[in-house]
Simulated assay, not measured.
Amino acid sequence: MTGSDPAAPVIDTSVPHPARRYDYWLGGKDNFAADRESADAIEAKFPGMRAGIRANRAVLRRMTEFLAGEAGVRQFLDIGTGLPTADNTHEVAQRSAPAARVLYVDNDPLVMSHARALLAGSPEGATDYIEADLRDPESILDAARDRQALDFTRPVALMLIAVLHFLRPGRGQAHSVVRTLVDALPSGSYLAATHFTVDFMPAEEKARYQHLLDAGISDIWPRDRAAFAALFDGLELVDPGIELISRWRPGPQPDSTDPSRISIWGAVARKP
């Protein structure tokens, strides 16, 4: 039988995608030449990128452990999922709470095809996936309600891990997106977020990174601490508050990497 499958996802391999670039930095194989070229160009100018990406993956695990364990959350809305790798949100959550429900959201068809094949949850819990874009939060909420993947009368952990920095600053878009999503969640829900920053970089490195943005080489838009903190307006920050991700509830062997090599803010906050 010949011909293409009309239901097959349309994947443009000529354009770099954040999820596939992230996969490349983590040492994965689900990426294309355009993704690798984009990643290498960024890392050539900012050699700490790979260390920051790995630290971000580690803090995702620690935040999820806190939410499923100490905070007792049993539902997770993970937007900007990325390609499956070790310690995905549902794996970490369901180790602490086997009945935890996780809804993944991404806008890359390749991510969704891999997720459906590889991200199997525990028998007691539930794991589901929708293809949608963070820039349209209402569509995410509508799809989540239509699928009945989450119970919006009970607390939900909204996971925005290394995704908000793809929304360009200065237009209020990130703040609006976060407000729309958080407003849809009941009291007792949480927001967990990480975000790239240049706050820890020396002046010459800040200028170098700005050149990447101006040249269109990078689509990762930094925010300073104040702008990141504003995304948590009206929420109750969990200790230690807004912190460099390697310092957010570190394990017994804290990451001693130079903060300028990580350059990612992180925080978790509760909706009162």
Results as ranks from 00 to 15, higher is better:
6 P>V: 09
9 P>R: 15
10 V>G: 05
15 V>A: 07
16 P>N: 00
16 P>F: 09
27 G>Y: 10
29 K>H: 15
33 A>D: 14
35 D>R: 01
35 D>L: 03
40 D>K: 02
46 F>D: 11
48 G>K: 02
49 M>W: 03
49 M>L: 15
52 G>C: 04
54 R>K: 14
54 R>L: 15
57 R>E: 01
58 A>Y: 00
60 L>G: 07
62 R>M: 07
62 R>W: 08
62 R>A: 08
66 F>P: 01
66 F>C: 00
69 G>M: 05
70 E>Y: 04
74 R>I: 01
77 L>R: 08
79 I>T: 03
84 P>Y: 05
86 A>I: 08
92 V>P: 05
92 V>C: 10
93 A>E: 12
93 A>D: 06
96 S>L: 15
101 R>V: 08
101 R>K: 14
103 L>A: 03
105 V>P: 08
106 D>G: 01
111 V>G: 02
115 A>L: 07
116 R>H: 13
119 L>P: 03
120 A>R: 10
125 G>H: 09
126 A>R: 14
128 D>Y: 02
132 A>E: 04
134 L>G: 06
134 L>S: 11
135 R>F: 09
136 D>M: 02
138 E>C: 04
142 D>H: 07
144 A>L: 09
144 A>S: 15
146 D>P: 00
146 D>A: 15
146 D>G: 14
150 L>V: 02
150 L>P: 06
152 F>H: 01
155 P>A: 04
156 V>P: 01
157 A>S: 07
157 A>T: 03
169 P>N: 09
169 P>E: 11
171 R>I: 09
171 R>E: 14
175 H>Y: 12
176 S>L: 06
179 R>D: 06
180 T>Q: 13
183 D>Q: 14
186 P>H: 07
186 P>F: 10
186 P>L: 09
188 G>H: 07
191 L>W: 02
192 A>G: 08
192 A>R: 05
193 A>D: 02
198 V>E: 10
205 E>L: 14
208 R>K: 13
213 L>G: 11
217 I>R: 02
218 S>I: 10
222 P>E: 12
223 R>C: 06
227 A>C: 00
227 A>M: 03
228 F>N: 10
230 A>S: 15
233 D>C: 03
238 V>T: 14
241 G>R: 00
242 I>Q: 11
246 S>L: 01
247 R>E: 15
247 R>L: 14
248 W>L: 09
248 W>S: 12
249 R>A: 11
253 Q>A: 14
255 D>R: 04
256 S>M: 12
257 T>Q: 13
259 P>K: 08
259 P>R: 05
264 I>T: 04
264 I>E: 00
264 I>N: 14
265 W>Y: 13
265 W>G: 11
267 A>H: 06
267 A>M: 09
270 R>E: 14
271 K>E: 13
